[in-house]
Simulated scan of single mutants.
Amino acid sequence: MPAQTAAPAPARGGRVSRLSQLTVPSMPQSVASTAAKSSFSQAPSHALVPPPPIAVKKDPKLANNWKAKSAAELTDAEVIAMPDTEYMNEKQMAFFRLKLVELKRGILENAGETTEHLREDTVVVPDPADRATIEEEHALELRTRDRERKLLKKIEQSIQRIDAGDYGYCDETGEPIGVGRLLARPTATLSLEAQQRRELKQKMFGD
């Protein structure tokens, strides 16, 4: 005797759900399980893994140029080409000190220009739209100067690290930060790997 199929259970209010009336082709349990595992395995489980560091290309032809030049005459490419055994020697330290001093000078000049702009724009403007535009420009400029003020503090700390002979080495691991990273961010105090670990931890657990 053929088995009787149970009628769909009525939805709330006594009405049969339209969804329950639709017939969906059944999928064997093993196929469904395999499909679920496949879709799960394709998920980007490596999304939180930081990307590998990019190697800095060195030009062998420039490897010895630093011996005949002063720190002020060296280019970024010549500093990158220096042998690893000369990492953070006196000339490299002097080179990065000059970069930091120049960066500091530029920030101080920008701060002076901001003061002049604010002093010049103190005249009352009758048009409300013009006043709003000027106030927005002032707010943006002040936010930029605030970020530069924080950077200025890091620059001064980096110069102190150079004077103490600690510049160029990771605060967490003690390993070399790398010339390429320091050229991109002269105030860096962490190696790329340590920085990525810290950012990953902040994403997972918050500040």
Score class of each variant (00 low, 15 high):
Ile155Gly: 11
Arg149Trp: 02
Leu103Cys: 11
Met93Lys: 08
Pro186Glu: 01
Arg181Pro: 02
Ser191Tyr: 01
Glu78Met: 08
Ser33Gln: 15
Glu90Ala: 14
Pro60Glu: 05
Ala72Lys: 03
Met93Asp: 03
Pro126Gly: 10
Arg161Gly: 09
Leu192Met: 02
Gly13Pro: 00
Phe95Asn: 00
Pro186Leu: 05
Arg161Ile: 03
Glu116Ala: 14
Arg185Lys: 12
Gln21Met: 14
Asp127Thr: 01
Pro50His: 00
Pro28Leu: 12
Ser38Val: 12
Ala32Phe: 14
Met204Ile: 11
Gln21Lys: 13
Asp130Met: 15
Ala55Glu: 12
Ser30Gln: 12
Lys58His: 06
Pro25Tyr: 06
Ala36Phe: 10
Ser38Phe: 15
Ser26Arg: 03
Pro53Cys: 10
Ala72Thr: 01
Leu192Trp: 01
Val125Ser: 10
Asp207Lys: 15
Lys91Met: 07
Glu135Ser: 15
Leu103Lys: 05
Asn110Tyr: 13
Glu73Pro: 00
Ser26Lys: 03
Ile162Arg: 01
Ala47Met: 13
Gln196Phe: 07
Asp121Gly: 13
Tyr169Trp: 09
His117Met: 11
Leu152Trp: 03
Asp163Pro: 01
Thr114Ile: 00
Glu135Lys: 14
Glu137Tyr: 09
Asp121Ser: 13
Ala139Gly: 09
Val179Glu: 07
Lys57Val: 12
Phe40Trp: 11
Ala194Cys: 08
Arg145Val: 07
Lys57Trp: 01
Met1Tyr: 11
Asp127Trp: 04
Ser158Cys: 01
Arg185Glu: 15
Pro8Thr: 09
Asp130Gly: 14
Ser39Trp: 10
Arg105Phe: 08
Glu73Asn: 00
Arg181His: 05
Pro25Asn: 05
Ala7Pro: 00
Glu175Phe: 11
Ser33Cys: 15
Thr189Ser: 11
Phe40Gly: 06
Lys203Cys: 02
Ala139Glu: 14
Met1Thr: 12
